[in-house]
Design a protein around this nucleic acid. Structure first.
Lengths: 341, 341
DNA sequence: TTGAAAGCGCTAACAG
DNA sequence: CTGTTAGCGCTTTCAA
């Protein structure tokens, strides 16, 4: 290991105190021009780089943010991350990404690690219902900002989508196209997004006096494989009376659903209509173009970042927690068949 | 902010010294069972969590590794990251991901930030040719492990793919199918992967006495949009004499190429054959199935992680740097047309 | 405007 | 086995 050059070395060489060097670096206290230039020159000469770790210890601030999401490979979360980064990176923050794989235990373990690392904030898309454990972290002073999902019992800042309304509108559209037998490919109901999207779904059916058919419903992890397998199974068990349309509750499940349909030889939309919450990967290459709820992941990230900054500048403990709801837009394309009445 | 509970609080309450508490936590020095249990109980009672920052400062080790890649949204790099994580996470390391967008300046800026953060290692898929600047970091004691790309002038551990040979084989196969006019959609030649893949490509043509047609060559950033636009332009300018096959030098460019082909109404493989280095997203949904070089991203990450651990355990400065070359396998599917001779 | 000095929370000699 | 103590590199009073 190369010997580390410290503020002390700089001070010595420049014949000033370490305090002065510190002041020059941070520019937060007056320093005479002459001294500043001298110190600057010495810093460059020695190739000195401030040690962020030492600073963190002293200042009790790490300029690190943890981002805990179910699946880091999902583009939706990567897009959120980019949004966050666009706001935070210029301020000197670094992001630590963590994938929970929708596993409560892993989620808790990751949060614990981030807690010990003393990250300044955690952006959390939780897959757990264990608000008690999360509350424990908050009580310990951890700054959690929830994204995508929420836990009602928890006092945190929050950036989520308008799951219920968006789904309601989307399903209403499907019904308007003449569909009566609509299936739903959903995540685990323990997660708020799954719950809210399902409620929107049900409410749309109910509002149009369509009974909800439990056997058309699939529930599982929010991922491609689960959707693929469960949809296959669901369709097989309903072979005698297939649904005419399917609603996939996220982008990954949409892809899995399409894989299942393809394998079973069911064409979209001729044999089965499909609508989804969030868009699939490379939609440009896939036929037909899907009718979807377009999410605004970048904006979610950006808002979360801004919330963080706001809270960071405002040390008053009693500031209200903010709930930001990002509207989601419906994009009608070609994956819903117009049924004869 | 909640008052932080320190090792001192624990020591006081348990009526032992801080050293003893430290020993109990780390388990690296003998402590009597009785004392240990007492301390453990106190830790739990107080909800004490060790402060990793303080530990880092003292031990000169952060248990953080930076991962710097051109595009964090590219599944290839995410897969590498997962491989790395599978090795490192159990050892208590956290990963900081950074995207350079193939921008040299940004790459250097990110490396600098990681350097100041005193990450233990950096896994770098570099897009720059400026080995001088990188060498500067290494001289400062930064531990860089190069992945995917390499810089010949640089003394580092290395995990890369067998770009040249894999491409040679793939293109030879294409030629074997009767193709003589083969285009290449490549990344910037400043990057080693682009260079090596191009060399493999050229060598295959040359070995079969096929002249290299410069106007069939596209060069640009390793991303989807670039490929899409440049391929469109390239095909338009060769309308009178199109290539019969295209080689895309990475997964993103393959997708962009497919978008261009689709838009121009060229079917794969009837009108244009396509082979690629690395597979596209959701290949299950795309027709036809592509003939590709299958990368083993997870293995690259794993090897890089292992290299890191090895170096970490071996403080001898003089240890040889290791060059690991991951073989890449060709998967023949349906995207190359058999030409009449 | 500058310097001296006291820590931030932790670990690791060293001494007992 | 356990306690004392000296820092890790930095910031920030407090005094000058």
């Amino acid at each position: 290991m190369n010997k580390m050059i410290t503020i002390k070395d700089v001070a010595q060489k420049a014949k000033v105190s370490t305090a002065t060097v510190s002041r020059v670096i941070n520019g937060n206290y007056p320093v005479s021009d002459q001294v500043r230039e001298n110190v600057m020159a010495t810093i460059k000469e020695l190739g000195y780089r401030p040690n962020v770790i030492a600073r963190s210890l002293k200042c009790n601030k790490t300029y690190m943010v943890g981002m805990v999401v179910p699946d880091i490979s999902n583009n939706y979360f990567m897009d959120i991350a980019r949004g966050v980064e666009s706001v935070l990176s210029p301020l000197g923050y670094s992001l630590i990404f963590c994938s929970t794989d929708e596993n409560t235990e892993k989620e808790l373990r990751l949060l614990n690690a981030l807690n010990e690392r003393r990250v300044d904030f955690v952006l959390l898309a939780s897959s757990t219902q264990d608000s008690g454990k999360l509350k424990h972290f908050i009580d310990q002073g951890m700054n959690i900002i929830m994204i995508d999902t929420k836990l009602d019992e928890l006092q945190t800042d929050l950036v989520v989508e308008d799951n219920h309304n968006a789904t309601y509108k989307l399903i209403s559209y499907v019904i308007g196209q003449g569909h009566q037998r609509i299936g739903v490919v959903n995540g685990l109901m323990g997660v708020s997004t799954a719950r809210e999207r399902y409620e929107g779904f049900c409410q749309a059916l109910t509002a149009h006096h369509i009974p909800i058919e439990p056997s058309y419903r699939v529930e599982g992890a929010f991922d491609r494989m689960t959707a693929y397998e469960e949809v296959k199974r669901m369709l097989q068990r309903n072979m005698h009376d297939l649904p005419t349309a399917l609603f996939a509750a996220n982008n990954d499940m949409a892809e899995g659903t399409m894989m299942a349909l393809k394998e079973m030889g069911l064409r979209i939309p001729e044999d089965m209509s499909l609508v989804t919450f969030g868009d699939i990967n490379i939609p440009e290459l896939i036929e037909p173009r899907l009718t979807i709820i377009a999410q605004n992941a970048g904006l979610i990230g950006q808002k979360a970042g801004e919330l963080m900054i706001k809270r960071d500048n405002n040390t008053q403990e009693d500031r209200e927690y903010e709930k930001i709801i990002i509207p989601a837009e419906i994009i009608i394309r070609d994956s819903v068949k117009l049924m004869d009445h």
